[in-house]
């Protein structure tokens, strides 16, 4: 229901009166709004001793250090490994989640049995439970089952993320008219054939929505991987927190550089999939 609204950002209305004034005001506001990131950006090129107390000073001839902070920051926390871990965990988990939960969601919507409805209810219930409730016991279970590597954490994400994802797929699957699937069955398709040839293409918008919501969650997640993963596997948020705690006094130079390195992939992702991200967020918010 939200899908159609999101795209209609450009209603066929007349341009606003005093449009130039709005443009001017919002240009200033926007600069002010992205200032925090700009401040971090220019501080990432300053010598570390002049960051903490005077962050608003632009780098000058005395304080400019080039990419020194970047090199030091990347070495201290092995940023490259953290990036690869985060990417692996996010991509694998999201693919597994959307594949498994869409199949499960469609099954629940079509079979409509008592057991299916019970599972559906439990999924809905799990959506409102905060992570703190299960964080201690979940880390014990994951530990016991050896799910403490970037591959092992994938089923953990599937389990904890199943609620919202399945819930959204059930909702969408229920709105697909049955006739199409029945026709496919008469043509000789089994459950797999119906799902992969007919249902999956129809559900594409929901796949995008769920994939975006899960990506934003898993890429930025700190607590779950910090409790589940062995200490030699770090994701980007864990590495940043480690940089803060691991060295007594904080090396603000390295910190600024690593923060920029953490933001850049997000901005690239945003630039590429902007339309889907904003649409997905609204659709997710309305349903979730």
């Amino acid at each position: 229901m939200a899908k159609t609204k999101v795209k209609s950002f450009d209603p066929s209305e007349k341009p606003a009166k005093n449009g130039w004034l709005l443009t001017l005001i919002f240009s200033l506001l926007s600069v002010f709004f992205i200032m925090p990131i700009l401040v971090v950006l220019w501080n990432s090129f300053k010598v570390k001793s002049s960051i903490n107390l005077t962050p608003f000073q632009l780098p000058n001839r005395q304080t400019f250090v080039g990419f020194e902070n970047y090199i030091r920051g990347m070495q201290q926390i092995n940023f490259f490994a953290a990036f690869v871990n985060t990417l692996t965990i996010t991509v694998l988990s999201v693919v597994v989640i959307i594949l498994c939960t869409s199949m499960c969601g469609w099954y629940i919507a079509r079979v409509n049995s008592k057991g299916g409805n019970l599972i559906y209810f439990l999924f809905a219930f799990s959506m409102v439970i905060p992570f703190q409730m299960v964080m201690y016991t979940l880390s014990l279970v994951a530990n016991r089952l050896g799910l403490t590597t970037p591959l092992g954490i994938v089923p953990v994400y599937l389990g904890f993320g199943a609620g919202l994802a399945t819930f959204m797929f059930v909702g969408f699957a229920r709105s697909i008219p049955l006739e199409i699937e029945e026709a496919a069955m008469i043509d000789g398709c089994g459950a797999c054939g119906i799902f992969f040839r007919v249902v999956l293409p129809i559900m594409k918008p929901t796949y995008i929505t769920v994939a975006i919501l899960e990506t934003m969650w898993i890429w930025n997640d700190y607590l779950l991987p910090s409790l589940v993963l062995q200490s030699d596997y770090r994701t980007i948020p864990i590495a940043i927190q480690y940089l803060k705690g691991g060295y007594g006094t904080v090396d603000w130079g390295a910190m600024m550089a690593v923060l920029i390195l953490a933001i850049v992939p997000i901005i690239i992702f945003y630039a590429i999939c902007q339309k889907y991200i904003i649409g997905g967020v609204v659709a997710g918010a309305v349903k979730g």
């Binding site: 199949m103 016991t137 279970v141 089952l145 389990g159 199943a162």
Partner: peptide
């Protein structure tokens, strides 16, 4: 269709809960 998600859900949510 259901078992993979259900098993993960039991391990990742129901049992810890």
């Amino acid at each position: 269709f259901v078992l993979p998600t259900l098993v993960a859900f039991i391990v990742g949510f129901i049992i810890p809960f």
